[in-house]
Design a protein around this nucleic acid. Sequence first.
DNA 1: CGTGGCCTTGATAAAGTTCAAGAGCCGTGG
DNA 2: CCACGGCTCTTGAACTTTATCAAGGCCACG
Lengths: 227, 227
Amino acid sequence: MDITKHIGSIPFFEELPNEQIEDLSMIITDQVFDRGQIIFSEGDDGNGFYVVVSGRVKIFKLSPEGKEQILHIFGPGDPFGEVAVFAGQHFPANAEAMESSRIFFFPRESFSDLIKNNPSLALNMLAILSKRLRRFANLIDDLSLKEVPGRLAAHLLYLSGQAEGTEQLELNITKTQLASLLGTIPETLSRILGKMSKQGLIESDGRRIKILDREALEELAESGGRL
Amino acid sequence: MDITKHIGSIPFFEELPNEQIEDLSMIITDQVFDRGQIIFSEGDDGNGFYVVVSGRVKIFKLSPEGKEQILHIFGPGDPFGEVAVFAGQHFPANAEAMESSRIFFFPRESFSDLIKNNPSLALNMLAILSKRLRRFANLIDDLSLKEVPGRLAAHLLYLSGQAEGTEQLELNITKTQLASLLGTIPETLSRILGKMSKQGLIESDGRRIKILDREALEELAESGGRL
DNA sequence: CGTGGCCTTGATAAAGTTCAAGAGCCGTGG
DNA sequence: CCACGGCTCTTGAACTTTATCAAGGCCACG
């Protein structure tokens, strides 16, 4: 098995001495999930956490009527479900494989033992949780203070920040999912993309979006914006 | 000074050996903030974190037009601003004293040293951050999936859960602040409280609110609810 | 080639915000 | 002691944003 290789390449475990990586490899469960398969559901007992090895996983909440709000989309190297390990017992949201994905599972006990002996691991984990808190704070801010065009503008700028330089973006999710990520519905998203195109802010062709007027987008994102 | 006594009584530091509490007391800055005074602003450099000793502190985001979304309200024993210590450098939101408050400040360096030697401290911190993530996830869920009546119902039930048993609640914040906490504005909150009263779900008199029909409220909170 | 998912567009309706005005409350200072 | 200013809360009316419902087009995959 090449499990140890995989573990070593998870950013989060990088600094771990080989010895401990081998220990880890003994307690890991290695699983593959098909596209659409549920990894865990809100309220399930969480007796460990997961790391994406390959593929993508979406973390989301469901309203009683079945509408979903996506909280995160995680890819290779990203841990998820850790909240259940440190606070309380059950998962606060649902996790589903967006495509065929390989996932490592780390049982709670062994992991918290590990942390007790590895302060740097704890600090890593603290950094990860802190970053998520920060992102959530922004999302809450956006949801309550900005309207959809503002949220979309902010998101596009965020994406272009990732892929630095280029004004040319490629969505790696469907527009329906993007809508859910922005806290709205596909119809509304579609209309707003339309308006933005008509006003020359962007060019939108399927999953390809080109930023034409970055300043105007920034203005929109800042101001909470109307179109 | 009785700083050590105060530190010992912060839940979070409880398990710390006396020695280290004394070490801590050497590096703490002890400050008093008046009502309305800003403790830090979004974007400020965060070279440490805070703990409320007495009083109350509100953590919030501001829209460019000045509308605020309250993220947390913290009281005695609650730490805040830790995100800046573990992830990145600047504070992701604003902090303001809601009343005259005594606050301890812990410089980043010394605190992260401390954590390196105290795994249980790290675990405590992880638990705190995890709980906040969980609360945020719920808030996001509410904001995007529920309408205001549903959020209000959920919040009232949450409050009554705290003060266990009684159906009689006393808000300890203004209705304007409650509106901000729910992601809406005072006018809307006022109207919805009015409707709930008319329909016999609650009785509302100033800051005193009495739950008359708990089941109906639960139904509202569950279903995302209309009135 | 048909079926299902995804995307778009239109008409309609609901929820919430904005703006404006007024009432109640409280602490300060004349 | 009373009046003033400031703040909170409430209510009404107009308006805006967004969701809902319905229908049609497109594309990929079996």
